[in-house]
Nucleic acid binder design. Structure first.
Lengths: 188, 188
DNA sequence: GTTCTAAGCAACCGCTTAGTATGTCGTTTT
DNA sequence: AAAACGACATACTAAGCGGTTGCTTAGAAC
């Protein structure tokens, strides 16, 4: 691993474990086996590290969602697949996901705005799936799609709080359960 | 308002707006119109303030849940009422709820353990409701009740991130929608 | 083989922070 | 009336923080 990779990796683990504000730059560079000079050579600030982690998760999830949503199966199946996929990939990259889920408001103002628009795009792509099902009459329409999406992603974000990879539930188990609940709640 | 009340109130607003670690004790006492001497007279530490806020929300929610769960209507209605109630009360005390939802891991070790057992009690009371419905055959049983409860409280906690009291949705609207989604997802 | 540059180090700086030690003043107790 | 006490204010400290600044070194370019 190169030095910048080691720094990102160390920062991810530490941010996931203690939260952004509880991690000193010194800890990160210690774990990466370099000094602060090296870190500030590759990254402009501590915020930059967070920004990097945050962005990479968001990009990955967005890509996958768009691919799944653009598939050609019935909308119920596509929504189920998308709902399940976000769980599985979040658990597979659990440290990164934890940082992403819990650190949105630690980003500096300028970077936060940039990220927000990309996050909105993700949200709206998901919402479009729900609305498609509503228009087709296979999903209930008395709950606004927007609310439903917030509802579901609340559940997803909360994974970081309760799920443990050492427990009895595999990532696929949770993904299936969560997707079942979502799709179930949308039955007319 | 007494001085300790003003301190709690100021801390609640600031913690809700910026997060525990981003708030200096000096800011809290400034907003409360006193000095640090006063604060450390009433509270042992900055952590104590958080602990106080955290505990009061938890106590309130637990009390209300137990009252609702112990009612004598059908389990579907009791679960719906409980699910809706937690939303409405969270929004009615939005700053407190925000602090509660987002600050669990900022508590000092000893206080965190104390809180965890009380939170578990809350969680299990809710889970018991779901299991009651499963046993009665009115709820699907292929998703573990435990997972369902985590799922729902994820959605609830996420309120702090997206909901705005100034928007078009009232607390009751959101409460009804969320409860509808939960109960809907549990239909066999 | 000299020059140039990127990579990384060690030391340091200015600032902020939670917490403390002590002082003051009005009220209650004796 | 004296003493004790509760309720704060003032002033301070010790530690930790993110970030900066030269400096050294290793390898590529010519």
């Amino acid at each position: 691993m190169t030095v910048p990779e080691r720094l990102i990796s160390a920062a991810t683990e530490l941010f996931a474990a203690k939260g952004f504000d509880r991690v000193a730059v010194q800890e990160i560079v210690d774990r990466a086996g370099v000094t602060k000079g090296a870190m500030y050579h590759y990254f402009g600030s501590k915020d930059d590290l967070l920004h990097e982690i945050y962005g990479s998760v968001l990009r990955m999830q967005t890509e996958r969602l768009e691919k799944i949503a653009a598939g050609d199966g019935p909308v119920v199946e596509r929504l189920h697949a998308a709902a399940s996929d976000v769980i599985v990939t979040s658990i597979d990259n659990f440290d990164q996901a934890k940082v992403y889920f819990r650190s949105a408001d630690h980003l500096a103002e300028d970077k936060r705005l940039a990220m927000r628009s990309e996050r909105r795009r993700y949200h709206e792509r998901f919402r479009a799936l729900v609305e498609e099902g509503q228009a087709a009459g296979v999903f209930r329409a008395d709950v606004p799609a927007d609310v439903t999406v917030h509802y579901y992603f609340g559940a997803v974000h909360h994974l970081a709080t309760w799920y443990s990879p050492d427990g009895v539930l595999s990532a696929e188990d949770v993904g299936r359960h969560y997707a079942d609940l979502l799709v179930g709640s949308l039955r007319p």
